[in-house]
């Protein structure tokens, strides 16, 4: 019992390590090249971004359509640390990893703080109005970044050290999945889903909808910020226009085509739709036409997205898991009558 419980909890970790090993093996055999690795790293960042969007749109039922704004704040926040303040030339090589991690934290926190500040007044807006404000937010951030000369204005920042490699991306994607899954199956996730399914009933059941929406927004922004930080350290070059509405709508496409409200959907959507345009490169200028058609067809014929609401076993926590975790069997747990006034 004890052993199998342990084993079950580290199984995903083993699986992930094996996947990483396989990719490295393919690379050493010359089947996968640096270009493939690069695409995989972008896909990883996109998975994080899609998960972040899923928290707000998929689980809390709010409409953010300007998520690239948070990503850019994270990218610039962390790039400023590693490129301008603690740049490689002023720190010893042994400090590179701590500085990198610090920069990601800063990126996440900057995005989270801004998410909190804009969430405060705007989350009272309903549905489409919130959507349009988040869009406006994303574009204001972009136009704002274009004005700031020390970070390269519209030209962008070059020479961001490329600290992020595939192993880091793997680690952060795994951590994000772990955290998002845990929070979804807690008081917080339940409150979000309640708000999503019926906000009036959620309020009537004692759920402070504004507060939980802000928690959702801030948490989501933090993930987006870290993902943005990773992105900056993959590409070494960031520009305000990278994080335009086009980027935000790409993320929405990943989320809804994959299946919103499902973590598996975010992985599949981001992975598949990041690699699809690359795989279609042989079509030259017809590639985006085909991509658009695929997207419309998926939306028309598969309303729950590609995954159809399916969730991988290690990305969900069932009631059975809770009991097993306590070393009990769900069927054997006695359900004695409540004492009077117990409820």
């Amino acid at each position: 019992m004890k052993f199998s419980k342990r084993f079950k909890s580290i199984l995903p970790v083993i699986g992930l390590a094996a996947l990483y090993g396989l990719i490295m093996l393919l690379k050493s055999m010359g089947i996968a090249n640096n270009y493939h690795i690069q695409i995989l790293m972008f896909a990883g960042v996109n998975i994080m971004m899609t998960l972040s969007l899923n928290v707000v749109n998929g689980f809390t039922g709010q409409f953010s359509i300007g998520h690239a704004g948070f990503m850019s704040l994270g990218a610039y926040g962390s790039a400023i640390i590693t490129t301008l303040i603690l740049k490689p030339s002023v720190i010893p090589a042994s400090m590179e990893i701590p500085v990198f991690l610090l920069s990601l934290l800063v990126g996440g926190l900057v995005a989270a703080m801004v998410g909190y500040l804009i969430g405060l007044p705007t989350l009272k807006l309903k549905g489409d109005y919130l959507a349009i404000v988040t869009l406006a937010f994303g574009e204001i951030v972009r136009a704002g970044l274009r004005l700031i000369e020390p970070i390269g204005a519209a030209r962008g920042m070059i020479g961001v050290p490329n600290y992020a490699n595939l192993a880091w991306i793997f680690l952060f994607v795994a951590l994000t999945l772990f955290f998002v899954r845990n929070i979804i199956y807690s008081r917080f996730g339940r409150a979000w889903i309640a708000i999503r399914d019926n906000e009036i009933a959620a309020e009537a059941m004692g759920i402070d909808s504004t507060r939980y929406k802000i928690i959702s927004f801030t948490f989501s922004a933090f993930i987006a910020g870290v993902a943005g930080g990773l992105y900056a350290h993959v590409v070494s070059f960031i520009q305000p226009d990278t994080f335009s509405f086009v980027k935000s709508s790409d993320l929405l496409v990943f989320l809804y085509a994959g299946g919103s409200g499902s973590l598996t959907g975010s992985i599949v959507g981001a992975l598949l739709l990041t690699s699809l345009p690359e795989a279609l490169r042989f079509l030259a200028s017809w590639r985006l036409v085909i991509y658009a058609l695929v997207l419309v067809i998926v939306m028309l014929y598969s309303p729950k997205g590609i995954t159809g609401g399916y969730e991988l076993p290690f990305l969900r926590i069932t009631r059975k898991d809770i009991y097993e975790n306590r070393g009990k069997k769900i069927s054997e747990t006695p359900l004695q009558e409540t004492k009077e006034g117990d409820v």
Partner: peptide, 30 residues
């Protein structure tokens, strides 16, 4: 006005949000 896409158990658990003492960071780490 039920929470339609949640299970019966979860519907009831949602009404416990107010009384729950789960904190954010411990919940994150489970």
């Amino acid at each position: 006005r039920l929470f339609h896409n949640a299970s019966v158990v979860d519907n009831i658990k949602m009404a416990y949000t107010l009384h729950s003492s789960e904190k954010f960071f411990p919940a994150l780490m489970r």
